[in-house]
Each structure stands twice: as C-alpha cells, then as structure tokens.
Design a protein around this nucleic acid. Structure first.
Lengths: 187, 187
DNA sequence: ACGCTAAGCGGCACTCGGTGCCACCGCCAG
DNA sequence: CTGGCGGTGGCACCGAGTGCCGCTTAGCGT
C-alpha cells in the first residue's frame, strides 16, 4: 500500500476515535510509520488528509461537463454531478466519515470551501459557454456558486440520514437541481 | 477611539501595505500600542480583524426577515438583503478593502464562509417557516445556501468593478435574486 | 564488483498563531 | 487604608508548517 494511502487511512481512523484537533501531526506520522517531515511531503496540511479526494472529482466533472450537449447549464450540471458522484457501496462508509468530519470541524469546512472555488468557476465557465455570455458575468457566477451550494446541502442532508444509500444520494441531487432549475418562487 | 477600532484600522492599513500573511500579530499589537496578549483578547484570531463586521449584519438580517410578510422566501430575502446592505458612501472604501482581502487571501475566504453558515441557517429557517416545512429539509437548505452563494457572487462582482457605487450593489442584488426566483433554466 | 549520483527520507531548528497562567496596575467601595 | 476587581501584558508553552542538511538506498555506468 502506498504511503499516502496508508497515512490517509490511519489518519481517518485516529480522527474518528480521538477527534481532529486532538490528533497531532506527530501522532499521524508515527502511526503511519513515517517521519513528521515526511508527512508534510505527502500532505501540505493536516486538513488535506481529509479533503484529499475532493479534487479528483473536479477533473472528472470538467470532462463530463465539456461533453454534455444542450444549452441548459442546469441540465448539463445535473447530468455531470450524477455521473461523477457514482459511489460503490464499499466507498460509502469512508464517504460518511469524511463528510462527518467536514461538517463537525469548522476548520475543515472552511478549507473545503476553498477547494470548491474551482468547481464554482468551472461551472460558471460552462454556463457562460451555453448562455453565450461571460464567465465573469453575475448570472454565470451566481449559477456556479449556487450549484456548489446546493451540492453541499445535498451531501449534508445525505449525511444526516444514517442509512441513506447511493440511490438516495442521486435522488437528493435530482431534487436540488429541480429547485435550481425551476426557481424558488414556484413550488 | 476604542481599542478594538484602533486595532482594526491599523491592521487593515498594514495588511494593505505589506500583505496579510507578511504581517505578524506582534506587529499589529505594537502598531496598535497594545500587548500581543491583549490583541487576542479583542480578536480571537488574526483573521477576525478583517471579518469583524460581517456578524453585525446577521442580527439585522434576522430581524428584518422576521418582520417581512408574504409566503415567498425569495421576496422576503431580497427585501431583507436590500435593507441590510445599505451602505453610506463613506463606508464603501473600507468595504472595498475588506472584500479585496477576503477575495485574495484564501484563508480569509475560508473563514468567511464559516461565518456565513449562520446566515444560511437563518435563511433556511425563514424559508421553512414560509413554506411550512422543516428547516432541515433539503429544499430549505438548498435555498439558504444558494442565497448566500448568490450574495457572495454579488459582492465579488461589485468589488471587481472599481467605480461601482451603492446603487450598483443594489442592482446586482436585484439581478441575483431574479435568477434565484425564476430559476436558471428560463432565461 | 565498485563507485557515483540522485531521490526520498527525516532529524533539527526556527517562525508564527494561539492559549493558560499569573503578576501587576489602577480604580472604586467599604 | 485596604481589599476586591477588571483590564493588561509578560512568560512559557503547544502545535502547525518550513528551510536546511545530512543520511540512506536504489539505480546507473564503467
């Protein structure tokens, strides 16, 4: 097992058992059988051990989004998110742990939103393309940020229901995009 | 001039001239004519010197929102934001500096979003009330988070146009809420 | 088989943000 | 005069993150 992977597993273990703040990088390094200095070679920050995977999705999202046809950004984003967020059952427990940490540790929530900036801009650029406008335009920016905000709400809601499965996640994504599509004034 | 106020002014000054990360708390304390330990009595974090004012708006927002009639949360939120974000011309330069820092220093952007969580929940609760549903429901959560996301886009867009005034800010707010109201699929 | 090099590793020392503890000063009440 | 009491700030400490540098080890050419 590669070092980074092992460190990540061990870290999530320790965070779950004794808390994020109560776990020092020294402990993580020792538990991973590696020097403290080496830990920081694999993860720029203690926070990034938890958030690692979030970035992988971005490249996938951008790719799917680029291939998606049509001139409705909502439909394209919906399809892209459904395609990207397809988790195997075996991955769900790890996802739950991750989400739990992100929800409960404010510092992690904060760091996560920085990561989401790229998603927001990717979505804004895609919307601008379909609407034939500028990615910096207000409407494109509002769109990109709202979509990410909605997805955060989806993950939060999914995490709140302990036995929700992968299908439930998809259903929540659908519901959220329905709202964004039709607007909040018509229910 | 109260100590907190003086520290805040001095800090924004130093941040603007030499950068946020390049300014240590020691310098801030010295520049404010106060001990380092005392600095932390007024601000829990270096970050909070910049973000201080953001909280004040929340109480006002909640109050306005509570008095707002109607069963459309979008209309209520729109009115509330227009009422709360009424800046005098003299305040605009300081607002610009603040927004600039928040945009450029990732750590500040991150911390700001933690502050916005309360706004999101306040808006979600208000929407739930008007829709006669639960504040934890997906739709209410998506609404609350989308509204805040849209407002962040508004401030970002306003900040990007150097000569935009208070009226321009209001116009952007209107435009953003129009989008949320009618949905992103109908343009 | 023998060096040589390059890359990963990790110890060490340092900076800086943040915290707990406590001693000090000025003020007001008794 | 004296005994609290709130604001202050020095001091020591912790943990995250970084730069530097010496060490090991694997891979290479000769």
């Amino acid at each position: 097992m590669p070092v980074a992977q092992r460190l990540e597993n061990v870290a999530l273990e320790l965070f779950a058992s004794q808390g994020f703040d109560e776990t020092t990088v020294d402990e993580l390094a020792v538990a991973g059988g590696v020097g403290r200095r080496t830990f920081f070679r694999y993860f720029p920050t203690k926070l990034d051990v938890v958030l690692g995977e979030l970035d992988d999705g971005l490249a996938a999202l951008a790719a799917v989004l680029a291939d998606e046809p049509g001139d409705d950004p909502v439909a394209a984003a919906r399809a892209a998110f459904l395609a990207v967020n397809h988790y195997a059952d075996a991955e769900l427990p790890a996802l739950r742990r991750r989400l739990g940490l992100i929800e409960e540790v404010p510092e992690l929530a904060a760091r996560a939103t920085v990561r989401y900036r790229d998603w927001e801009q990717t979505l804004a650029a895609d919307a601008a393309r379909r609407w034939d406008t500028d990615a910096a335009s207000l409407i494109a920016q509002v769109f990109g940020r709202s979509v990410v905000a909605a997805m955060r709400a989806v993950f939060s809601a999914w995490h709140a229901r302990p036995e929700a499965d992968a299908d439930a996640l998809g259903a929540l994504v659908e519901e959220a995009f329905d709202a964004l599509s039709r607007g909040f004034s018509s229910r």
